[in-house]
Amino acid sequence: MRNSLPERRAKLGWSQQRLADELGVSRQTVISIEKGRFDPSLPVAFRLAAVFGCTIEDLFSPE
């Protein structure tokens, strides 16, 4: 699944560790999501949307 996490995170000036802390997951989880190798659970997807102030559809799109 494609996502716009790296761009949105860069806009906020956050590191991967900072985003991981906000989500309550490991930094490796953020790395894997950004690379599109790990589809987050629905709760994490909702938290991501809340963190970036957008909808899940804005963040993720099918390949």
Binding site: S26, T29, S32
Partner: peptide, 10 residues
């Protein structure tokens, strides 16, 4: 220790 280990890639 992370808050939600069950949601992590590990």
């Amino acid at each position: 220790a992370i808050d939600r280990p069950e949601d992590s890639v590990e």
